[in-house]
Write a protein that binds this DNA or RNA. Structure first.
Lengths: 191, 191
DNA sequence: CTTATCTTTCAGTAACTACTGAAAGGTCAT
DNA sequence: ATGACCTTTCAGTAGTTACTGAAAGATAAG
């Protein structure tokens, strides 16, 4: 009798792989949910990413136990974000989908979009608020009021913060993988 | 007749200030919602931050048109996060609340908490998945299967990405304001 | 102890988001 | 044109989250 432990039969390997993938998919879905991405979309993305293999609508439906409608809409949304791609196979009627393989690129895409949709409008609002409270709008005496000064101070602190954060984002977005790894190298050296 | 444009009467200043603050509060609430923080909590925080003035439960209720119960629970949650503080005033029965003034510190607190709650579990899951698919678990022949290799590859790319991201977070968290401004200076010089 | 003042809790409900499944819309082969 | 095959849309519904208001709990003063 050999000393090695018993290994699973080859037939079980597929099962084990699926279990591991499902584990990842579930966790990814949970994380997505707390970041404002709905669970199903995150799970679909996780499935495409983790298998590394193009899947068609029916594959997704069966694997995640969701309806055709839901699959269709979620897949489209993921395509709109740009983190998965449609894939036609010659001679086949149905469409397949695959995830980007480069995590850094995916992150860049998401970061760019969220910056545009969520940070930029806030920055614009802050500018608008400051304008409403400027001396030239309110007059000299009024603008000296303590409450006005307090709010103006808070507005500019926040503006400074967001401007800087935006610049960091910009680095990530503009440089994707190479940029990010450079960022990290620089950071780790500097501290 | 003087050349200057007509300025609002002093009585209007308060109104103008409120309007500007409300604008900021609304935008902040909208942003919060898309980041997985509920709108009301984000609005309460925005109110405390932007006024720079401690407010009691009733102030919050009136200003944002929400119920006592909602105020109470949301204020507690914000305290739990650590981005607002309770404030007792000598001789007064009721409690006041104020926001941290340092945006960098607030960001650090939030980043630390989200890393702990959301990134760390994913990293742990990834490790677990890899273990399930290692040669020592699956056996030599099985682990060579293409599908297994694909999934393992995706798992390690993701792990690398998240490890690096975690390190960046760590910098922010550990150094708060001074750290962040240094980070930014370093970054802007390096690119 | 009683009253006044303020806070917290939580069952019930309102509001919202996500999902289904059936129907309509395309596209290609014959 | 007709049928086979696949995708998209969307009204209706299930499921979830957020909110209210009334009741209970705390704390201090009288």
């Amino acid at each position: 009798m050999p000393l090695t432990l018993e290994k699973p039969a080859l037939g079980d390997v597929h099962q084990q792989l699926r279990t591991a993938q499902d584990l990842f998919i579930r966790r990814w879905g949970e994380m997505g949910a707390t970041w404002g991405i709905n669970r199903t979309m995150a799970e679909i993305h996780a499935l495409l990413y983790i298998t590394g293999t193009p899947q068609c609508t029916d594959d997704v439906m069966e694997r995640l136990h969701i309806s055709r409608g839901n699959s269709s809409m979620s897949l489209r949304a993921l395509c709109d974000w740009g983190i998965i791609r449609r894939l036609h196979r010659r001679g086949e009627r149905r469409e397949y989908f695959e995830s980007l393989g480069d995590v850094w690129e995916m992150f860049s895409i998401i970061a760019a979009e969220r910056k545009r949709r969520e940070m930029d409008p806030v920055l614009e609002t802050i500018k608008q608020c400051r304008q409403m409270l400027e001396e030239s709008t309110l007059g000299k005496v009024a603008s000296r009021q303590e409450t006005v000064q307090l709010t103006l101070g808070r507005l500019s602190s926040m503006e400074e913060f967001m401007t800087v954060t935006n610049k960091i984002f910009q680095q990530f977005i503009g440089n994707a993988k190479s940029g990010l790894t450079r960022v990290v190298k620089v950071l780790l050296k500097a501290f």
